[in-house]
Write a protein that binds this DNA or RNA. Structure first.
Lengths: 229, 229
DNA sequence: AGAAGTATGATTGTTGACAATCATCCGATC
DNA sequence: GATCGGATGATTGTCAACAATCATACTTCT
């Protein structure tokens, strides 16, 4: 028996990566609002580290597009207008369609089944009129769709796009939906994947995007304004 | 006349961003080989700055996936195996197809014409048997395809994927091709775009990817091994 | 009242110093 | 020869200090 059997290599995350993850989460949740300035000294004080690693973390998020850095003036949470929202959804759909394409070539039956579980989560949230859980389940559906494709690059790109999506959705007030339509849309996508119907799947993903954009970019958000991820 | 007419706002790039761009270029060109360690002090000395901004630049490239950072041991240029090459090409094709889809919905005729200009560059390089120019023209074709879609996110994602592509291609030796086939493939894509033939365009992009992967991942590169971007 | 100039405070950008960590080498021991 | 322990040098990670820059407030001048 080898003496090191049973041991696992230890891998420590770097401090800037940890800080970046925490900041990303706060930005994603809207705790740090679009346009808000990140003050290094404040964050350093809150986290109990020096400004160096904070600056390094900020570079990560700037590279990712979540922060905007203006030399000598500071770093701000990115703000997205209508064009950005369109761009985010276009890019997301591109990634999701590519992932779906890969999934259809594999065991699409169990992939679809797994997505249906996520749809059930959405249905449960709808039944409880828990809109926060619904949003989370909606995002989880899309996340899982791409993750199952086991493509590191699609997942990486999608991760950023989902963060950007959340940032956009955080800004919108009064987001109501006939949630059963929302659940049904996702169920149709999952079923098309399950059945290996490539063309239908692509059409549904496109329609899902068009639907979302139409609702998100309605000029006067009203009580009937709809939301979907 | 307003006193500030004719003036343009000045916007200074941050030092870490400048450093990151230079490093990205060196990595892209293969001057910094996959697996090579970046030594902060060396780079700082070469650029005449302190280690702080170097570290910040490195965080950018790490976030982008071009560098791999291991705590307390250093930062290394990312290395890609066969699975990575597949993933890069899959992701690139996803982005390129999405861009193509957007272009077809607009003035696809002039978009296609513009791509044909890039094909002519490729043809000129073929006629001179200049394989470096051919590679550059090939990459420029794909770059332009996505840039014309005017989608910041597709362009951003594509930029990284192209750098990764170059890194992979840098490793391969003996890359010979019947270059006229290569030029023809790109010409067909440009023509399909010009003519607004969506389905054909998507099929050609997929075939282009499959072709590239088949060639790049041939087990024993021979004089007949083909290369395309 | 509006414009210009100056001062001030907050924040950013960079640097060099120091501690921590790791890889490598060398010598001792079995 | 193989293993272990210790020393050494290289490099990384973090920190605090200082200079530079900007935004804001206040004062003076027209």
């Amino acid at each position: 028996m080898k003496r090191t059997e049973g041991f696992q290599p230890i891998s420590q995350e770097s401090t800037p990566a940890l800080i970046a993850a925490q900041l990303r989460s706060l930005i994603s949740k809207g705790s740090m609002a679009p346009g808000a300035q990140l003050v290094e000294m404040d964050i350093a004080g809150a986290l109990g580290v020096s400004r160096g690693p904070i600056r390094e973390a900020i570079q990560r998020l700037t590279q990712e597009g979540l922060l905007v850095s203006i030399r000598n003036r500071g770093v701000f949470v990115a703000e997205f207008g209508e064009a950005d929202i369109r761009d985010i959804y276009e890019a997301r759909t591109a990634v999701e369609k590519a992932a779906a394409g890969l999934l259809v070539e594999g065991d699409h039956s169990s992939a679809g089944a797994e997505l249906l579980v996520k749809v059930d989560d959405m249905e449960a949230a709808r039944a409880k009129s828990n809109s926060e859980a619904m949003s989370e389940a909606d995002v989880a559906f899309h996340e899982r769709l791409v993750a199952m494709a086991a493509s590191p690059r699609l997942s990486r790109m999608h991760g950023t796009l989902l963060t950007e999506t959340r940032m956009c959705l955080n800004r919108l007030e009064g987001r109501y939906l006939d949630e059963s339509v929302r659940v049904a849309e996702h169920r149709h996508i999952a079923e098309a994947l399950k059945d290996g119907k490539t063309e239908l799947l692509m059409k549904l993903l496109d329609a899902h995007k068009d639907d979302a954009l139409a609702r998100l970019l309605t000029e006067k958000p009203s009580a009937a304004t709809l939301q979907t991820a």
